[in-house]
Amino acid sequence: MLDTKVQQKPLSTEEFLSIINIHVPLEKNGALLTGYCPLCYDEEESFLVYPSKQHWHCYACQQEGDIYHFIEKTEHLSSSNAIKFIEVFIQEQPHLSANIPHKEPPVPTELARQNKDMDKVIENPTLKHLLSKFHNCHGCQGIALIDGSNDKIIGSSINDFTHLDMQSLHLFFSKTLNNSMKILGDFSQDNKDTLFRMEFSFQGKRKKLIWIPELSAYHYTILLLLDEDFLEKILLMKLKQYFNNLQAPAAS
């Protein structure tokens, strides 16, 4: 049941498809669009989207619904948070938000309230979306985004850790590993596809820390803090897909 305090707004077809596209690259197939289901990961293109009805249906897992159900299921959000998510997403896309009256500023993430440094990130819609998207995943304790070109933390949503903590971990991974890779040249010619995973105890619980360098043409590096039993494969796939879809920065 949807929260009556937060109202669903009608979306344009372009907005509807842009939101579906967060999780599913779609191909036109007559009046429909098809793709791989982000809920059941079926190997066939069982995920059908009806743009005119703004409806989706997966023939493999038999799940279906409107855009709000889609975001509830893919982002693991409540009904009201799914509505907020969609509002924020549309406002962040300048070409989509042109026709939408701007009523309120986007809802800041919990960490944004805690950490003033996040202001810089909040101004960047892509990064804000990324941080909120992955911070909301169950079992994902947080994410830090680092500019690999100068080793500075762009934003971090890892509770209990400061930016300085994250930066020192990043510098360790970056410098030690790069030096070691030079010694062990046959393991890696560059950082592409390199991933560093470490398990440890934190506050009595098993956690894992994952460091992924040089994602995308922006040279973003990511640090993830996850619960021990978190299956990171899907998250990593999504992350790589997300960064692959980012356009390369303009040459200066």
């Binding site: 596809d193 995973r197 470490m198 398990e199 956690k207």
Partner: peptide, 14 residues
Amino acid sequence: VGLEATTEMILNTP
């Protein structure tokens, strides 16, 4: 940074 003992480490390279 306040983490406890590291017990395992995995490095994936190309």
